[in-house]
Design a binder for these strands. Sequence first.
DNA 1: GACTGCGATAGTCTGAGGTTATGACGAACT
DNA 2: AGTTCGTCATAACCTCAGACTATCGCAGTC
Lengths: 310, 310
Amino acid sequence: MTNFTLKQLRYFEALAEQQHFGRAAEVCAISQPALSVQIKELEQQTGKALFERGARQVRLTAFGEDFASRVRILLRQADDLGAFAAASRERLAGRFRLGVIPTVAPYLLPGLVPQLSAHFPDIELRLRESQTARLVEELLQGRLDAALVALPVEETSLTETPLFAEDFVLVRPRAEGAHPVPHITELRNMLLLEEGHCLRDQALSFCNRPAGFARDDLDGSSLSTLVQMVGAGLGVTVLPEMAVPLETRMADVTCSAFRGSVPGRTIGMVWRRTNPMTQELLQVAQVVREAARTTCNGARVLHSRSGETL
Amino acid sequence: MTNFTLKQLRYFEALAEQQHFGRAAEVCAISQPALSVQIKELEQQTGKALFERGARQVRLTAFGEDFASRVRILLRQADDLGAFAAASRERLAGRFRLGVIPTVAPYLLPGLVPQLSAHFPDIELRLRESQTARLVEELLQGRLDAALVALPVEETSLTETPLFAEDFVLVRPRAEGAHPVPHITELRNMLLLEEGHCLRDQALSFCNRPAGFARDDLDGSSLSTLVQMVGAGLGVTVLPEMAVPLETRMADVTCSAFRGSVPGRTIGMVWRRTNPMTQELLQVAQVVREAARTTCNGARVLHSRSGETL
DNA sequence: GACTGCGATAGTCTGAGGTTATGACGAACT
DNA sequence: AGTTCGTCATAACCTCAGACTATCGCAGTC
C-alpha cells in the first residue's frame, strides 16, 4: 500500500509549488503528460484527490495541503540522506574502532590520537587496549575495525600492513650499569610480562633460554611494574625502545642497547581482509607511521608494499 | 545525485537486519540477484561501501550503520505518510472552510457546529460569516471550500445543492398585533438590512414596492437591530422563520404569518464545480439538513436531485 | 580435495515510466 | 454564438530499469 516512489513525491512537490502542470513538468525536466500520469498514480495510491483542477488554476485540496507538508519533510530528509552520503564520501568518517596492544598503547596513543583527530575531523574514535589474541578475536567478530599489534599475525582472514620496527633494549639495575652488556643468549633472571602478552613470547623466543633464564615466579602485569622490579634488584628485563623514556624516567635502572644481533619487534596494523574500507585504513596506517616517527623514540617507519594499496 | 529510490532503501534495511542476501531477498519477496544488484546500485550512488561481505557473514560498515539509522527514520516517515493517507481515506478530514451568510449563521451554527464535529471528528472547521457576494468571491479564489447562502447563485463555475426552505414572517410592533395581517403587496414602512444582504433584496423583490414601502433612510446592520427598531415603532420588517425565536424574544413586537402567497427563501450549499470532494461535500450538506431540521424552526428540508451524488 | 553455502555476474524479458501527438473542455475574445 | 487559446488528460509507442533464471567463483568445511 505504501508503494509510492520518491520520484512521485518530488513531482507532487513541484506541482504543489507551481500550481501548473506545464511549469511543474519543466521544473522536473519531464514532459507534461508524464507528470500528469504520475500525479494521477499518486492520487490513486493515496485514494484521495490531491489537487483540484480548475480551468485556469491547479490548487491543492485540503487533504493535499496536509499531505504536502508531510511530503516536504520527507523529501528534505531524503535530501539530507544524500548530502550525508556525499559529505562522508571523501573523508573517513563515522565510528572507527581501533585496538592496541598494551605494550604499545601508552607510548603511541598520546601522540596518535590528536593526529588522527586532526587528519579525520569527522571520525568518532573508539580505542580498546587488549592483548593480541583478544584483539584478533574481536576483529573477526566485527567488533573492531583495525588493531595495532606486533607482526606477524597468523590469521588468514586478516590482512596487515607494517608500520614501524623498533629494537628492544636491556634494562638492568643502575648498579649493574658499569658491567658489560651481556649477549642476548647470556641473560639471566629475566623478568617477563604475564601470560598472553606478545612481548613475553618475543622475549622468550629471542634467546635460547638456559636454566635460570627467566624469573617465571615473578610475572609483571605491565612494563611499568617490570621496570620497578628491576630497580628493586629482582632481575633484568627488556623494553621496546618506545617505552624507554616514559618507563625509566623515575626508576633506578639503566638501559643499554644489545650488542651483536639486536632483538626487536615490528608493529603493524591488521584488519579483516573483507573490510571494504581498505583505502581509508591505509590512510589511517599512514597517520600512525607519522605519529610513531614524531613521538616514538627509535621507531623506524616501514612502508607497505605497493600491492597493498589495492 | 540524490536519486536513490525508496525501494532500494527498503531492500537496504532488510539486508541490514537479516545480514544475509538470501534471507533479505526472501523478506523483500524478490530474488537474491535482484537484491544484490540494487544494493550495489545504492552503494555506487552513495559512493561508499555499505556492507562488508565476509565469507559467512554480511555486516554493515561503520558508514553503513550511520546510513542505516537515517534510512530507518526516513522509511518510518514514509510509512507514516502512507498510513496518514489511508486514515484520511474514509472520513472527511483536514481543514474545511465554510462560509455562511449573516442571516443564517447565528441561528444555524449553534446547532450545526457540534453536529459537524461529531460527524467528522478529524475535521478542522473554519467558519467565515460574510454576505453572498463576498463568499462567492472567496470560493472562486479557493479561500473557502463551501458556503451556505440563499439560492439561487448565478455563477457558472459553482455548483450547489438545496438544503432547506423557510417562510418569511412579518414583524410588527406589538401594539399592531390586533390589526389584520396585511397582504405582502400592502406593506408600508418596511425596515431593511443594509446594502449587500440577500435578505434585503428578497424583501424588496417579493412585493411591488409602492411609494412609502421602504424606510430606506433607516437600514439596519443586523436582524437584531431591525427587530429593535420595529419594537420602537419605526416600521415593520420580515424575518426568516429560523430567526424568530432568538430575535423576538426580548423585543416588544409580534410575529405573523403572511396570508395568501407566503414569501420565503431557500438556503443551499455552493462550492466550486471543480472541487474533487463532491462526495464529502454532499455528506456535509446532509449534516446541515439534519441540523436545520432539529434546531431551526420551520425549516423544510430539501433533498438534492439524484444526479448530484456524482 | 571435493562439497557446500552464498554472493556476484550474465543473459533475457517485462512493464513502469518516459516520449510525442492528439483530444477535451472551460475561459476569453471577436 | 462561434472561435481561439490555454491547459490538462488520454493514446500510442518506445526504452531501459529492474526483475527473473542460470551459472560462476570463492571461502569454509568435511
